[in-house]
Design a protein around this nucleic acid. Sequence first.
RNA 1: GCCGGGGUGCCCGAGCCUGGCCAAAGGGGGCGGGCUUAAGACCCGCUGGCGUAGGCCUGCGUGGGUUCAAAUCCCACCCCCGGCACCA
Length: 1015
Amino acid sequence: MNDFIEYLKQISEKWRKEWERAKLHEADVDESKPKFFITAAFPYPNSPAHLGHSRTYSITDAYARYKRMSGYNVLFPMGFHYTGTPVIAMTERLKQAFECLKKLGFEDKDFVEKVWQAKGSSTIKDGIRRVMEAEGKVDEECVEPLELLVLFAKVFELPIEDLRKITDPLAMANYFSSITEESMKQMGYMIDWRRKFTTVDPDFQKFITWQFLKLKELGYIERGTHPVAWDPVYNTPVSQHDTKGDVEPEIEDYDVILFKVGDLYLPAATLRAETVFGATNVWLNPDVEYEIVEVNGKKWVLSPKAAYKIKYQKDDVKSLGKISAKELIGKMALNPATGKEIPILPAKFVDPNVATGVVMSVPAHAPFDYVALMDLKQDPQFKDLVERIEIIPVIEVPGLEEPAAIKVVKEMGIKSQEEKEKLEQATKEVYSLEYRKGRMREDVIEKIAYGKETKAALKVLLAKKPVPDARELTAEWLKAFDMGDVFYEIKNGPVYSRFGNEVVVKVLKDQWFINYGDPEWKRLARKALAQMKIIPERFRKSFEDTIEWLQRRACARTRGLGTPLPWDKRWVIESLSDSTIYMAFYTVDHILRSNNVKAEQLEPEVWDYILLGKGDAKALSEKYGIPENVLKEARRSFDYWYPVDSRHSGMDLIRNHLTFFIFNHAAIFPEDKWPRQIVVNGFVTLEGKKMSKSLGNIIPITIAVKKYSPDVVRLTVLYSAEIGSNADVSTEIIERVINNLRSVKELVEMVKGFDVEKPESLPTLDAWLLSSFVRDVEEVTKAMDELKIREATNILYFVTLNRIREYLETLKASGRELDQSAKWVLRYIVERWVKMMMPFTPFFAEEMWHLLGKETFLINEPWPIAEKELLDPIAEASKRFVERVIEDIMEILKVAKIEKPKKVRIEVAPKESYEMLKMAVEYIEQGKGMREFMSEAVKTFGKSKAKELRETFQRALGLDEVTRQAILKGGLDEKKVLEEFKKYIEEKVGAPVEISEYSGGKKKPSAMKVAIYVE
RNA sequence: GCCGGGGUGCCCGAGCCUGGCCAAAGGGGGCGGGCUUAAGACCCGCUGGCGUAGGCCUGCGUGGGUUCAAAUCCCACCCCCGGCACCA
């Protein structure tokens, strides 16, 4: 096995050189051919590319190669995404790692080795902790940065000397992009590397500048106040690609309701403002030292965490000191909604880390509150207070007598607030029930302490209203008289930025946004999507939902590499915003660069000309000093290659990048330049497990290639799963792939010397093989058109291979040699078969092609055509028929317990039986039923045959399509076929076989169903 | 609750779009045999039940339906997974 892998690696290096020398992957404008522009999402060079990347790129490449062989002029380019936090955060962590080593006095290589040993089968972090403990140098802050160092050194096998050199972003990006580029070349991707660029190249930045000026001109850029997820240390907004674990931070707004106590306010945070009418008390966590903070001129009591968070959300926040919860508990607070005084009580379930750390208590509708109150009844200090509390139901649900919270708590048998899990489940139930079916009770309003006018107004607004409406109204009403406010919280928190800091919500005053919420823009995006092909189609809905869901999106950062915002250079355009139409850049950059066009010359007007065809080349040439022909060539190139015909990426990018891609194209380009197709693929898992940094089970492409060869890696990821689902790479599949490639090679070596004329006619066996192969060609082609790559590879590397093996075995068992016919058929098939392997295992296919004596580059050969005239349903049906006869004989032997048969006699049906069957098939093919068939057939064959006719029709119904075709074409001469395969049958059955016409025995054969006698 | 995916034999997993070569590909595991001093690798056979003649029965989440014929099409339901909504 190792020898074979060595062989595969060797041929891959050989052909890589040959291809590069021949500039085989460079694509230029060629008006004589239809073009196909295919792109895959470019990577962030913050680590070397791994198997997960290789899936997207291998799919893209296989498709590119298929299209090229199908007659298209195919352009497949690649670049590198240097922008933003992904790269910079990695350098920060690496820097920290080296500082940690120094601080803790570890020697780098020695440390890494020790960790790797200590790790065992657990996580890298555990390994680090073990080593730290063993050496008595524990520093939790250092665990994470050091994890990265170990990952790079051991999993990615990068020399530590190299790592020391790449602690600034540009150096790191350059280093990893060159490794990734090399691995892509090793994998044989058909990339036109002349067009490579990075997102910090000056000319690219000018292109992005143009794009943003366009967006601004169109009114899609806004400046405004908006809550954003924020790294409080690095002072920069964060989104999915800026967080650890790529979590999109979600912002949730709590309504804050101010309960007055003396000159202080308790800001209770709630998601259910409408229940304030049923608030019976306010909860504080008795163990927390609260802080008094001045917000908008009022003194709010907040948990320490909330006091910290609110500084990012409000102006003029002043800390005024501390107050322990105990000082407030027992006092009365004013419920602003009802005008009634309610007590402040202690509750441990109140989490000071969530929202304000102050909660209002609505026992009728919140299980936590209800249970906490019941608990308090046991407390002598609060017993009296609690017993005076009257539970006030605010919401009614049809069919429910009791308030929902109480009912659910009773049903679930919850006894104390310690039963957190149960309570959370109860809460879920109550809320979803009341949200969907609940309405505000009329009597709620009666109980409030305000005057007639207020009551009347509230009654009109709230009584009998559905919960969602009432919620909004209540919150608005409270805000209107300064008793309500908003507090933002990270909903899926805690979320950490890539720098390692806990993300907070910041209300940004002058942030720049792209407004994907613009209705006109949304309309264009919908239209663009509607015209686009989405593969697999079932993801279309996700795109539609994302288009609807997208709103304003912060598009600038204060940190990281990238293009400054053209009108406000303090900001850098963030990574998901500068990568939406960059495919256009590939169509022209090598032209501009090879003609020495400088970034300074690439002013917006120039881009207007190149990308939109606006303006006059001659005038622009004079103005900016770019030769006119260069401008024209760039314009022509863009116009030729654009739009993008197929865009490839992983499915995690649907909700951001891919949808932004649609939006931005729709905004900037005319309709005929909108993308044509998006192809989305799933992830790669290893032996059923997600690849993860912490486990260190990531396989970089470079290492996989070293271990298994490029073709094996490619075929494995391509074959593992169909495009839309996750692909599991396992040694099991890898081994099968290797074995099959080896078998293919053996066949090619056998066939390479076959050089014979096409024979006059083919034996049935050969005609069967040939015909089946033609069907394979047809199916593989169809599968590739639909990007069913698993299906295509399955047919080629497994089905076809097995059939050829079967053919050879049958040939041998029939006592035939590799005669002219066999040689011709095998040669015919193997040549085309090898061709079709080009998209999936290009190096291997190329080598096989040349083994066959060919001298052209296979990628320049046309994709095989399924030659329909070679289809032979009679041969296919005959082969099946023979197999069926053998099966039947074996079955008889088994059932009759005959171990060593002396002789097998087969009798075939008389002609008449065939005529009946043919007639039956004709009727079935015309969609006619048994009744029609019988009435006509009885006339032809006579009434005495009625029973046989009925049976024939039944049998015909069960026949497969190919056999039916064969019968319509005249059917098979069963006797002849059996004679032809006699030796083979004898070999299989282990006894001499005798074939004859029906001789009137007790078993009556019929068409396609022989009579068998075993002696 | 909404949207999407899924439930297949001891296990994994294809098939379902386009109904019939489907007792259901391919693996894995198990059993038996070959090769070998032996193990491993490799090769062959068996692996739902019954059956002394190629047959019958049961079967692809559950229950119905369409059809000459359903794993495949339609309806309803149950369960699992992902996303969203919702939830102190």
